[in-house]
């Protein structure tokens, strides 16, 4: 029912192998850092895509939930809790806050929802900068230790001290998140999300509890943001209020839209392509947001399906043409 053409599958395998081998051909530590950050942002953007792309709710609080995950891990590991416990706990806190915020705000529609979530985002940012006892204020929390090694039979413990190990940790998280999203989206459950996005009164009329559906999607998306934030904190070994900033939300938004809303690879592609592109276009650094702002407008007007969505449409056209040819001959 939900199958993909063969060349798309091949492409995914190639990308997967390339991603596995990346630590052995990445040119330098700096670029490696950029790549790891992209993987983490790819996780977060995928979470935002669930809410924004599939369920059609324009959340502008995603950076805040990323920040809750980051601060959660930072505070808990500082208190001596193992990272492996702190990460799921922080993600659960993100999800729990998401539940409260979602229940409070998801009755609002459209612009109201966007502005209300933006308000929450700014609140989180202000709190992060001012609740000095908990968050360390504007300086944040720094000097976080590495995750404790995992004991592993035969090979000995897996250490998490190198960039490579951090890369594989992030990559594993990304793959798990994408797999989970794949299951959710390509199912009747996923269709009910899209039903809410596409036609809420009709979704309601066929027996879908639209409010509950939106809340579930919002909570799940924010759980994913929390995971991404937690890994980000341990990777940077620090966290500061900028990890909750609405600018981060806007970055995620750029990744989702330019990569392709409501496609699974889109946000990940966006999270990779854009920062990597910026590294090669260093001289444009100052004009970064100028270009992305303009690009965001142009893409949403002319290619609202984004890069991956555009490719997909091309794919469908080719398939349709092939079908036509075979039926003619």
């Amino acid at each position: 029912m939900f199958t993909k053409p063969i060349h798309t599958k091949l492409l995914y395998i190639v990308i997967f192998v390339a991603a596995l081998l990346l630590p052995w051909y990445v040119p330098d530590a700096y670029i490696f850092q950029v790549v790891i950050t992209s993987v983490i942002f790819g996780i977060a953007a995928s979470g935002m895509n669930l809410i924004l792309g599939y369920t059609g709710q324009a959340t502008l609080a995603h950076g805040a939930f990323f920040g809750i995950g980051a601060y959660g891990v930072a505070i808990m590991t500082e208190a001596g809790i193992s990272f492996w416990l702190a990460l799921p706990a922080a993600a659960l806190i993100s999800a729990a806050v998401g539940l409260v915020v979602g229940v409070l705000t998801l009755r609002t529609k459209g612009a109201y929802f966007a502005i209300v979530t933006l308000c929450f985002g700014v609140i989180a940012w202000i709190v992060a900068g001012n609740w000095i006892e908990l968050t360390g204020g504007h300086n944040g929390i720094y000097g976080l230790g590495d995750p404790t090694p995992i004991p592993f039979p035969f090979f000995g413990p897996i250490e998490f001290t190198t960039q490579t190990s951090m890369y594989f940790l992030s990559l594993a998280a990304l793959l798990v998140v994408l797999f989970a999203l794949y299951r959710l989206v390509y199912s009747v459950f996923g269709l009910s999300l899209m039903a809410v996005r596409n036609n809420e009164p009709l979704a309601d009329a066929v027996g879908i509890n639209t409010f509950a559906t939106k809340v579930i999607s919002f909570v799940a998306g924010n759980f994913i943001a929390g995971i991404a934030g937690g890994i980000y904190a341990i990777m940077m070994a620090s966290v500061s209020p900028s990890a909750t900033s609405y600018l981060l939300t806007f970055n995620f938004l750029i990744f989702v839209i330019l990569g392709g809303m409501a496609t699974l690879p889109g946000p990940v592609f966006g999270a990779f392509a854009i920062p990597v592109l910026m590294e090669f276009l260093q001289f444009l650094q100052d004009y970064r947001h100028l270009i992305f702002g303009a690009l965001l407008i142009a893409v949403i007007i002319y290619f609202p399906q984004g890069f991956v969505g555009g490719l997909r449409r091309l794919n469908q056209k080719i398939a349709a043409r092939r079908k036509q040819k075979t039926s003619e001959s």
Partner: peptide, 28 residues
């Protein structure tokens, strides 16, 4: 009133949704 961004079969599956009121965890 239809789900006009989706396929015909998807529309039908959504219509049947409440019968498969098996949400998030079962799907995951």
């Amino acid at each position: 009133s239809l789900f006009d961004q989706l396929r015909v079969i998807d529309n039908m599956l959504i219509g049947y949704k409440y019968r498969t009121q098996l949400g998030f965890w079962n799907t995951l």
